[in-house]
């Protein structure tokens, strides 16, 4: 039986969809069977970031309203045999999705997949309730900004009321090293202390991320980018491995690495 993980944040635009795509891809790279669910009805994005937009025929609302079978609505990834996406509906009425409908879908998917990654919409309304309904665990994404941390805190409070397998875990996204050093951004330690949940990963702010999203290729596919390593590490932590937090220091130059290797 698989496990369902919801990726949520409260505040919009902090990187839920990017995180969902990259964690899903990283787990698939580790030979896990993964199904992504986009629950952001009306504003679907996950298909675009995965580069699967033009393969969509049916969506989650079609499944819930019985216009198609769950299997028919799943889109197979271009790169991995066992990475699928259940897309959100673009046009239908939001109230079509219910918590019971979600639970049913997630339960069915858990029979076949190791991990179900649920991309949650922003906010704390019905869409959020639906997204967390079937989840066994939650990952909360925040950026190092007060407003985003505040919303994360609110979301954590709401999730703690549901009985999930464990308390939610935290990803801090879009960290800019220099700003953090200068004290212009909230410190990682301060955020973790305030939210009082385990940190599962940190991701740097990177231009490559935006390029990758635009190409429809999650950055996790390209291991030469730092952000890619961050997501792969998060995936390993989800699998239960202990991976130390990678430093966000700028990559050492090639020569420095060679020197370090020869200890000169």
């Amino acid at each position: 039986m698989g496990e369902a993980i919801v990726i949520t944040s409260g505040k919009g635009g902090v990187g839920k969809t990017t995180t969902s795509a990259n964690i899903g891809t990283s787990l698939a790279l580790m030979d896990k069977k993964v199904c992504l669910i986009d629950t952001d009805i009306g504003l679907r994005n996950l298909d675009v970031i995965m580069g699967l937009e033009n393969r969509i025929i049916y969506d989650i609302v079609d499944v819930i309203q019985g216009r198609c079978k769950l299997q028919q609505a799943l889109i197979k990834d271009k790169r991995f045999d066992y990475l699928s996406l259940l897309p959100a509906a673009q046009t239908s009425d939001k109230s079509a999705v219910t918590t019971d409908g979600m639970k049913e879908i997630v339960t069915e998917l858990k029979q076949e997949y190791d991990y179900i990654i649920i991309d949650c919409p922003a906010g704390i309304e019905q869409g959020f309730q639906n997204a967390i309904a079937g989840a066994d665990r939650a990952i909360v994404v925040t950026t190092p900004e007060n407003s985003s941390v505040r919303d994360a805190d609110r979301i954590i409070g709401l999730i703690e009321k549901k009985d999930m397998l464990e308390p939610p875990r935290l990803i801090i996204n879009r960290i800019r090293n220099q700003m953090m050093k200068n004290g212009d951004m909230l410190d990682i330690d301060d955020i973790v202390q305030l939210l009082a949940i385990d940190l599962i990963g940190i991701v740097a702010d990177s231009e490559e991320m935006i390029k990758a999203s635009n190409k429809g290729e999650p950055i996790a596919l390209h291991p030469h980018f730092k952000a890619s390593i961050s997501y792969r590490n998060i995936a390993r932590r989800i699998l239960g491995e202990t991976v130390p937090l990678q430093s966000l220091e700028e990559e050492k130059s090639f020569m420095q690495k060679v020197k370090a290797f020869f200890k000169i």
Partner: peptide
Amino acid sequence: SKLQVVNQIVRSGQ
């Protein structure tokens, strides 16, 4: 007149 003892984090919105 009781002292109510609670162990929790009172988060944003709570």
